[in-house]
């Protein structure tokens, strides 16, 4: 089912004065088709066929700060979805909701529904360990553990007991490093500290580390912001390859990057999900004024 929405969030009405004409009307399907449940004021198709993760009416608070406001979004299988938006708009926050990394932040509350393959991940009975195995995360700054390259990759399989013996573990490490496109560069120095690698290598090591526990979804929070263009290109290439096996949600500040790697793009603004759609459509024909401003660089 594909639905298009056009309701407006009250917050947006108050916080940013906008005219009716700011919202290009989509007359294709009437809002009755939505069913009883009202889904937030996002422009574009939040739903996809065959979603891996579905988020509905997600709100996040840091203490009193309302950081994510009523966001609904689907993440499809084997797609790369890019999340863009001005700094502080809640991209990282939203991303961290998807594998409950927000649990580690004191005073952070999440409400709404987020499902991974029909399972509510905020169900109090749910165990975060398997969840995080299924939904891995790569961070903005490469954060290899202060251990050897081998140990970095082996860490996940070790704690989860995924490898029965040393040969298995070696195999997992090698496969993961190969998939992360790092094997050729490090195969001769697996016992050297991971912190001794270059920034781009470190980031790919972190990706290898994430792949080693074979997740279904990989969340990437500005994975290339600390890298130079060449390293960035390598990581982007890698993302493209990984798409075959994994679902990837990537936060980025680089519009070019979003355009290069993603199939769909979601634009966040002050905690709201303003618009979501096919990447080509977002970048060539944004429907919301805010998106357009942002994309054309008219927005700070």
């Amino acid at each position: 089912m594909i639905a298009v929405f056009e309701t407006r969030s009250p917050i947006m009405d108050n916080s940013i004065a906008m005219n009716e004409s700011d919202f290009p009307r989509n007359t294709g399907i009437s809002s009755d088709a939505l069913g009883e449940r009202k889904i937030s004021g996002t422009v574009g198709e939040i739903q996809v066929q065959d979603p891996r993760m579905t988020c509905r009416n997600v709100d996040v608070f840091y203490g009193n700060k309302h950081a994510i406001i009523d966001v609904s979004l689907d993440i499809g299988k084997n797609e790369v979805i890019a999340m863009i938006g001005p700094s502080g708009c809640g991209k990282s926050t939203f991303l961290r909701c998807l594998n409950r990394m927000n649990d580690t932040i004191e005073g952070c509350r999440v409400s709404g529904q987020i499902q991974l393959e029909d399972q509510d991940i905020y169900d109090p009975r749910l165990d975060v360990v398997p969840l995080r195995v299924q939904v891995g995360m790569v961070f903005q700054k490469p954060n290899p553990f202060p251990k050897s390259i081998y140990e970095n990759v082996a860490y996940g399989p070790r704690i989860h007991g995924l490898a029965g013996n040393k040969t298995d573990l070696d195999e997992i490490v090698e496969t993961s490093l190969r998939k992360a496109g790092l094997w050729e560069e490090v195969k001769d120095r697996l016992d050297q500290p991971g912190t001794g690698l270059s920034g781009g290598q470190q980031q790919r090591l972190c990706i290898a580390r994430t792949i080693a526990v074979s997740p279904e979804v990989i969340l990437m929070d500005e994975p290339c912001s600390a890298l130079d263009p060449i390293a960035t290109a390598k990581v982007e290439e890698l993302i493209d390859e990984l798409r075959e096996h994994y679902t990837i949600a990537i936060v980025t500040h680089s519009m070019q990057q979003a355009a290069r790697v993603s199939q769909r793009t979601a634009y966040f603004h002050l905690g709201n999900l303003v618009e979501v759609g096919e990447t080509t459509q977002i970048f060539t024909n944004p429907r919301h004024r805010l998106t357009e401003d942002y994309i054309t660089g008219r927005f700070g």
Partner: peptide, 19 residues
């Protein structure tokens, strides 16, 4: 090794060792 055969194993192993 493809993901399809790899994945159920992971969750199975987790199931067993989690307790």
């Amino acid at each position: 090794m493809s993901i399809a055969e790899h994945k159920p194993r992971t969750l199975d192993i987790l199931e067993r060792t989690l307790k």
